[in-house]
Amino acid sequence: MELTFLAAEFLGKPTWLWLAFIGVVGLILAFDLGVLHRKAHEIELRESILLSLFYIGLGLSYGGFVWWYLGPVSGMQYLTGYAVEKSLSMDNVFVIGVILAYFGIPRAYQHRILFWGILGVIVLRGIMIGLGAGLVAQFHWILYLFAAFLIFTGIKMLMSAGGDDHYDVESNAVLKFMRKRFHVTDRVDKDRFWLRLPHPKTGRLTWYATPLFLALVCVELADVIFAVDSIPAIFTITTDPFIVFTSNIFAILGLRAMFFMLSALVHRFEYLKYALSAVLVFIGSKIFIADLMGWEKFPPPVSLGVTFGLLAAGFLFSLWKTRTAPAPLQAPIPVPLAVEVTPAERIG
Rank of each mutant, 00 (worst) to 15 (best):
F177V: 11
T4E: 15
P200F: 05
I151G: 10
S230G: 08
L337Q: 15
K176T: 12
V66M: 02
G254H: 01
D240A: 10
L276M: 15
K273N: 10
W16Y: 13
I151T: 08
S87A: 14
L205S: 06
V35S: 08
V228S: 04
V169F: 11
Y274S: 02
M159T: 11
A133G: 10
L19W: 07
K190A: 13
T239E: 12
Q330N: 06
D168L: 10
L292K: 12
A331C: 09
D32S: 09
L145D: 09
V121E: 07
F213A: 12
M1I: 12
G162Q: 04
P334D: 14
A327D: 13
L292C: 12
S61V: 13
E85A: 06
G130T: 07
V123Y: 04
F245H: 05
I105G: 01
G64M: 13
V174E: 13
W295Q: 07
R181Y: 14
F260R: 10
F259I: 04
T185F: 10
F31L: 15
K201I: 06
A147F: 06
V306H: 03
E2Y: 07
I127F: 15
G120L: 07
L221S: 09
I249V: 13
E9K: 02
P106A: 09
Y144I: 09
F94I: 08
P14F: 01
T202Q: 08
A290N: 13
F182C: 10
G254W: 01
L143V: 07
I118V: 12
R346D: 00
G284V: 01
V123T: 14
R112P: 05
T342K: 15
S247P: 00
N92I: 07
G132C: 05
R112Q: 12
Y271L: 05
V93S: 08
L280E: 00
W67V: 09
F260M: 07
G130C: 03
F260L: 11
R46C: 05
F149Y: 00
R196H: 14
G254R: 00
G294K: 11
R187L: 06
V281F: 00
A40R: 05
R196Q: 15
E296D: 14
Y102K: 06
I129T: 00
L216F: 08
G97Q: 03
V217W: 02
L158G: 03
D291P: 07
L135T: 03
L11D: 00
F315K: 06
V306D: 04
A137E: 14
M159F: 14
L310I: 04
A83K: 01
Y62A: 03
L17F: 13
L119M: 15
L265Y: 02
Y109P: 00
R346V: 01
